[in-house]
Design a binder for these strands. Sequence first.
DNA 1: GAGTGGTCTAGACCACGAG
DNA 2: TCGTGGTCTAGACCACTCA
Lengths: 239, 239
Amino acid sequence: MPSRRHFIADDLRHRISSGQLKAGERLPSEAQLATRYTVSTATLRSALALLQGEGLVEKIHGSGNFVRRPLCKITYTGGGGAPATWTAFSAPLRMTARTTNVAAPSHLTTVLNVPPHSALTEVLFTTHEGKTPHGLAHIYVSHDLAPATPPLAEQIAVSLADFRPPLSEVQERVSARLPTQEEAATLRISPTLAVLSLTRVSTDTAGRVVEAALLVLPGDRADALFTTRFMSEERGSKE
Amino acid sequence: MPSRRHFIADDLRHRISSGQLKAGERLPSEAQLATRYTVSTATLRSALALLQGEGLVEKIHGSGNFVRRPLCKITYTGGGGAPATWTAFSAPLRMTARTTNVAAPSHLTTVLNVPPHSALTEVLFTTHEGKTPHGLAHIYVSHDLAPATPPLAEQIAVSLADFRPPLSEVQERVSARLPTQEEAATLRISPTLAVLSLTRVSTDTAGRVVEAALLVLPGDRADALFTTRFMSEERGSKE
DNA sequence: GAGTGGTCTAGACCACGAG
DNA sequence: TCGTGGTCTAGACCACTCA
């Protein structure tokens, strides 16, 4: 027997897919819906959280719950197929960047293969589509590999793109989790919504780690795509 | 100002990482913890849900909350690097399989490029490590490509492995979401915990879709790894 | 059967958004 | 200011686990 929140979620899901509730439309308030389904507000909210996780409903604090536009998911393209992080996304996105020099975070010294507290250039990206944030990226570049780091994001983009050709390996680790409180606030998503967390480490032909990127994407509006092609003469003989 | 559930989660997280709460140990009951932190049970449970999502705490219905063993995450290896789904995981896993012939689900006819309701061989895997489920996989193979489908899983494994060499492309789409009620029950996870959802489509050299796989992995105990290597003479000139 | 977590209620109060 | 969602309370009742 399905729980009440699943029954409510199923009903609303059907109303949305059948067009009874149109895209962009505002749902009745949570109090009204709770009355209609004769449940408490907490139960109704957990039902909406399910739909939110499926990308069908968007909650806007102080304003209401809205039926999401037909799912226009952002797709992150993996495998280093794109020259830089932000162009790895399918849609043109507005983005803001902030560049600072920081000491290497402890959790990164191993993957970056640098001594602790060594100087790094940190680039913090937030990508937007319209008003709604679509991504959050922390990119770390070894300081000596980006010698004359200009404070402008565009120039960073160029200099990072220059590093691309000698890349020999890109390793991307993907996991699903709930967002931290800070991430939820930045991405304007509910703390109950899953995020896609990507850790990308790029290595050049000399075996040095050129770049480490931590990306956080809201699960309801983003996914990642990895395409592997096999050459006809190539055989993945081992591993 | 952090919310109460985050304060509680932070405190418990610190007690775990400092060894004050040891791995495998049972936490006090939710009622006791709620009293200690002077919060309601609902608030305390939402704090535990955060830790659960981080893979630090495991809830067992009717038994208690337990500190998870030092994180031994399952890693799914992408890129078709492994000959078959189950060997794509890092740890040796016990798995059970069920093979049935089904009509093509509507959401798969496009990716499999087969007419609607055409016969497919469906293989349903559940992988376990000890008692706890670690993965859920639906694999669909076009019926005419697996002509003499034996009912035994091991033989399926062999026949699928035979298909490997002529593969030309593996496309894997990864997303993060909350589990369906059914998935949560099968994987023995809370409905509030994020899952990693992978859709893998394998194409052979003739351009035919050989296999479609839908994998669901619990976010707290699994992640996916994609490694891309660049040949020295190869250049990803476009796209 | 005793104790545990899972679900749910009927409120309260706060934070945000738009007029 | 008013209506909205966000957080929280102090319970209730049910389902599960284990002795």
